[in-house]
């Protein structure tokens, strides 16, 4: 680690300090996720910058305040990408929210992409969890605990993410009459299969010959036309079992797009709040109390509480 990189994290730690409530601000892409931060919390920003992309290791070290778009354009120069969502704001925000990309079947899940996390703890220290390699079981899995934790356990400053090669060919198609479940079952490793109750979108990825062969095979399941990309989707995420998605039209009002084979439904309406009852609730409270005993990190936010 270079002196400059250490200094950026130390500066962030100094900014977070040790007293008073703080909330991290990125691009405010999912500002109300899990509830808006309590008024009065001091706003802080994580440092920015892509530090080191190592394509042969399939890793990138990047500061949390960096825009996802900036990270992805740096990775694309070497033919790679990450699991972070294209519609994410900052790297740290995307990790704290834990929302997957629409093409999660091809890109993988955000929870599987975070190899190492360096964060500022509630008592103002810089703490490292995980390791720099793609495979690592050295100690407990702090990185996974932090994905989706909405900055309530520590404030993410810098991370190492797993990267993946961008497939040689990629093609979006859409159909007004195909059964999305039959489509998903017929494809080996599509990038995405999306359904809004009427229309189905498919992203085919791989070598050009395979993409062409899969596109031809799809013709038996409906009529298809090229699409420029995925459809526009709403800001809210419902989480259903993949096997429950057929029932979405009876379950979710307003506009929605379901990710077939995954279970995420992107919707204009917010899902009902889930409560963590019983032993699970007690465990979650103990975890919060261990990492942030005074509740100063992002007060007001509750992981699992909607958008």
């Amino acid at each position: 680690m270079t002196a400059r990189a250490v200094a950026a994290l130390d500066d962030f730690a100094a900014e977070v300090g040790t007293v008073g409530t703080v909330a991290v601000e990125g691009c405010r892409t999912r500002w109300s996720a899990g509830g808006p931060p309590e008024p009065g919390a001091r706003l802080v920003r994580a440092p920015e910058g892509v530090l080191e992309h190592r394509p042969e290791e399939m890793t990138v070290r990047v500061r949390a305040g960096t825009a996802v778009a900036e990270l992805h354009s740096a990775l694309a120069e070497k033919g790679q990408r990450s699991a972070l969502p294209e519609r994410g704001g900052t790297v740290g925000g995307a990790l704290a929210v834990g929302e997957d990309d629409l093409s999660v079947l091809g890109r993988g899940r955000v929870r599987d992409a975070l190899l190492q996390v360096r964060y500022v703890s509630a008592d103002g220290r810089v703490v490292t969890g995980g390791g720099p390699t793609v495979k690592n079981v050295s100690g407990f899995d702090l990185p996974r605990l932090f994905v989706g934790s909405l900055g309530t356990l520590g404030l993410i400053g810098e991370v190492i993410l797993r990267t993946n090669p961008i497939p040689p060919a990629s093609e979006w198609l859409s159909s007004p009459d195909a059964d999305p479940f039959a489509v998903a079952a017929s494809l080996h490793k599509p990038g995405a299969v999306l359904w809004d109750g009427v229309r189905t979108w498919v992203q085919l990825e791989g070598h050009a010959d395979d993409v062409g062969a899969q596109a031809r095979a799809l013709e038996t399941l409906g009529s298809w036309e090229p699409a420029s990309g995925p459809p526009e989707v709403g800001p809210h995420r419902w989480s259903l079992r993949p096997g429950e998605l057929r029932g979405v039209p009876d379950r979710i009002a307003g506009d929605w797009v379901a990710s077939i084979g995954v279970g995420t439904v992107f919707a204009s309406e917010a899902p009902p709040l889930r409560s963590l009852a019983g032993g699970l609730g007690r465990l979650a409270k103990r975890m919060k109390a261990e990492f942030d005993p005074t509740g100063r990190l992002n007060p007001g936010r509750h992981p699992g509480g909607g958008i």
Binding site: V137, F140, S149, R237, S239, L240, L276, L280, P303
Partner: peptide, 25 residues
Amino acid sequence: GDVVTLGGVDPEPGGYDLRGAFVGG
């Protein structure tokens, strides 16, 4: 002695990823 279900068959079961924290424990 508490019995809990960590994670879920749905993609974002809500709350901290305690299933992720548990695996490798």
